[in-house]
Amino acid sequence: MQTKFKKSYRFAIKTSLYITLFITLLMSVFLYGYYTINVLVILIFAICCYFFSFLVIQYRVERFIYKRVKKIYDDLTLLESTSLTKGPITTDMNTLTQEIDKFARNKKLQIETLKVREKYRKEFFGNVSHELKTPLFTVQGYILTLLEGAMNDEKLREKYLERASKGVERLSYIVKDLDMITKLEVGDLSLNIETFDIVELIKSVFDMLEMKAHKKRITLTFDTNYRNPILVNADKERIQQVIVNLIVNSIKYGQERGTTEVSIENLIKNKVIVRVTDNGEGIAKAHISRLFERFYRVDKSGSRKEGGSGLGLSIVKHIIEAHDEKIYVESEFDVGSEFSFTLEKAK
């Protein structure tokens, strides 16, 4: 399909006017010196000169610029340019310059975005490799030790098999969580939306995690006594997973004898916001923007003593976004953190 051509007459109009004025003035001086000046003749000559100059300049400049501009457009087309290939070609240099500048800025932004994504991609694959390698080598080590003769010792055999089983379980968690995130991202994981009491759900999570919190002497509590139910519309199982992940994190990084507090507030007419607040380690500002990335860890030492797949917050984010809701985080290092998310209030 041939590119449409948008004509610009500004250059030809101005240039023709300058040429006409100059030649007319020159002719007037010539006639004044040798002949009698006839105003009508001068006027006709000026008009003829103007139109002739306009046609010649417009045609020649148009062809001259068009060939070069079209080459620029064709080259940009190969680069899958944006607006430059959608509109007609123009011979106006100001317009062309603006479009080229806009194209260059867009491409620069795209390149910078790709560089950031490439950096995250490398970090992600490095993290995946590390997360899978640790339990895999653990399982492999115990099995090889057993095969080399340790299986003859009944106590040692049971001990090593239990540890290998934990390694396999960890691998299973990672694969299962990665599969869930992938399904959430592509929309293959359907949500079972129902109406339920969010207060009762949080109480059940408190009961579930009571022993884990007791080990660090952390108190799980509400900010107030919720006597009346607060009904929301969401996938109950997935929201329970969100709350479990957030509270487990608050216990994991909380201070001994600390507190994890949950509050539920009306945000707007049809929304509630659930806040999970702790007085634990807190998170430095440099890490907050990347908290929800897969396998991203604030602790760069790579310690895995707390367990987990390293995908908890990423799953939380995807579940909340699958509900078309928002999740927020506020934290101050050595003070504590607050994770909050919105839910649709039942009518």
Rank of each mutant, 00 (worst) to 15 (best):
E118W: 09
A104I: 00
K86M: 05
P88M: 03
M93H: 04
D101W: 01
T91E: 06
K107Q: 00
K122V: 13
L96T: 09
R105T: 04
D101M: 04
L109G: 00
G126C: 14
L109K: 06
L109R: 04
K119E: 12
V128C: 14
N106H: 05
R121I: 14
E99G: 06
K115L: 01
F103P: 08
T85K: 12
F124G: 03
K102H: 07
K107P: 00
S129N: 15
N94E: 01
F125T: 12
M93L: 13
K115E: 06
T113V: 11
Q110F: 03
F124D: 05
T90A: 02
M93Y: 08
T90V: 05
F124L: 14
T91K: 04
L109F: 00
F124Q: 06
A104V: 05
T97Q: 05
Y120E: 05
T113D: 13
N94P: 02
V128A: 13
S129L: 13
T95F: 11
R105K: 12
E112L: 07
T97P: 01
R105V: 01
G126N: 15
N127W: 02
L114F: 14
K119P: 11
N106E: 11
V116C: 05
K86R: 09
T113C: 03
E112I: 02
D101V: 01
K107I: 01
E118C: 08
E123D: 08
K122G: 07
L114D: 15
F125M: 10
D92P: 08
E118V: 06
G87R: 10
E112A: 08
I100T: 06
K102T: 07
Q110N: 05
L96W: 14
K107E: 02
E123F: 15
L109Q: 00
E112C: 05
G126E: 15
Q98N: 09
K108D: 03
V128Q: 13
F125I: 12
V128P: 13
K102C: 08
V128W: 10
T91A: 02
L114V: 12
F103N: 14
D101R: 03
K122R: 14
L109E: 00
N106K: 14
K102Q: 10
E112S: 13
T85V: 11
L96Y: 10
T113R: 08
I111N: 04
V128M: 13
K119Q: 12
P88G: 08
V116D: 05
I111R: 08
F124V: 00
E123C: 07
N106I: 04
L114G: 09
K115H: 05
P88F: 00
K119T: 12
I111Q: 10
E123Y: 15
P88W: 01
R117D: 11
G126S: 13
A104Y: 04
P88H: 03
